[in-house]
């Protein structure tokens, strides 16, 4: 039972002239919550579709729950990026249909559907036609459809896109609940703070290649923080110029909304040394070393390499 939930070995996929995925290898451990991050068109959705056996790799092998996704379909819950509903079907009927396809026995199915609708705060939607729901409500129904059969492995492709903050928080809570029940969860996003909040492992994909695969503590350790935030008592933008002249500071700029200066520390310099010198240079309210955010890591690894257009292709 301790074998990884998903194993990819040198998986590649090409669509015509576009090499969507290039030799990706990775393992997703059972019970983990893994985030696939990357810019639009990076190859996240293609990788997920291959995990789901919706498309097949040109090269490499995949193993999902010890077999392939076709054999394990009933044990996997999948929320695709391109998702919709049967517009004229009633909500409860749609959920029953999806559950039946996923092998849920008819006994108790009605209660299960009602229970889920209550959990997403849509108990009154059961008799409504799908087309009568708002976009956010439809997304909640799509989410239920992907987990109603209580899958071991849940794969969510951009689950938060289009959700308002209240519904995003609700979905966040539901994902945490599923995780706490021991289910393996993979979700893709290009919103870094969601990945940072939820995931215990991050896989960064860019231009079809895996460029990062690590836990959040590992990432923080690896991407040593090099930004010092100094808040002078004077709160004057000219302070940034003075601080920029300190030894070991590459550059500094003033952040008006924080009434503070941000100092980028040179690679071979100890940030603690810069912090001490900053304290000594002028009266300070606070001086702190900023935590490395996933955003920083993303920008560092991908920022320079972003494709000219982020509109095209599969995610």
């Amino acid at each position: 039972m301790n074998a990884p939930a998903v194993i990819l070995r040198n998986v590649s996929k090409r669509f015509g002239e576009v090499q969507a995925v290039r030799g990706i290898s990775l393992e997703v451990q059972r019970g983990s919550l893994t985030g696939f991050i990357g810019p639009n068109g990076a190859g996240k959705s293609t990788t997920i579709r291959m995990i789901m056996s919706i498309i097949h790799p040109d090269a490499g092998t995949l193993e999902v729950l010890g077999a392939d996704a076709i054999r394990a379909k009933d044990r996997i819950g999948y929320l695709p990026e391109e998702r919709g509903l049967y517009r004229r079907m009633r909500v409860a009927e749609f959920l029953r249909y999806m559950a039946t396809l996923k092998g849920v026995p008819p006994a108790g199915l009605g209660r299960r559907v009602e229970g889920w609708l209550e959990r997403v705060q849509l108990p009154e939607a059961a008799r409504k036609r799908c087309q009568e729901l708002s976009k956010g409500q439809q997304q909640k129904i799509q989410f239920i459809a992907s987990v109603i059969h209580e899958p071991e492995l849940v794969i969510l492709d951009e689950p938060f896109s289009g959700l308002d903050p209240v519904n995003a928080r609700l979905l966040n809570r539901l994902i945490r609940e599923l995780h706490s029940q021991g289910r393996t969860i993979i979700f893709s996003t290009h919103v870094m703070h969601q990945a940072e909040q939820l995931c215990d492992r991050i896989v960064l994909i860019n231009r079809g290649e895996k460029i990062l695969d690590a836990t959040m503590p590992e990432i923080r350790a690896r991407f040593d923080p090099r930004t010092v935030q100094a808040e002078p008592v004077a709160a004057d933008p000219s302070c940034a110029d003075a601080l920029a002249r300190l030894a070991g500071v590459e550059h500094a700029h003033w952040v008006p909304e924080r009434r503070a200066a941000e100092l980028t520390v040179a690679r071979d310099v100890d940030p603690q040394q810069v912090m001490r010198e900053a304290m000594a240079s002028m009266p300070m309210r606070s001086v702190e070393l900023r935590r490395t955010s996933l955003d920083d890591v993303f920008v560092e690894l991908v920022g320079e390499a972003l494709p000219p257009s982020e509109e095209s292709g599969n995610g």
């Binding site: 056996s53 076709i70 391109e82 919709g84 509903l85 996923k102």
Partner: peptide, 17 residues
């Protein structure tokens, strides 16, 4: 065509081949 334009196709393909 409706399943494709509604984008329900991939939802269904997650359950059936």
């Amino acid at each position: 065509i409706e399943e494709k334009s509604n984008k329900v196709m991939e939802v269904i393909l997650s359950a059936v081949s």
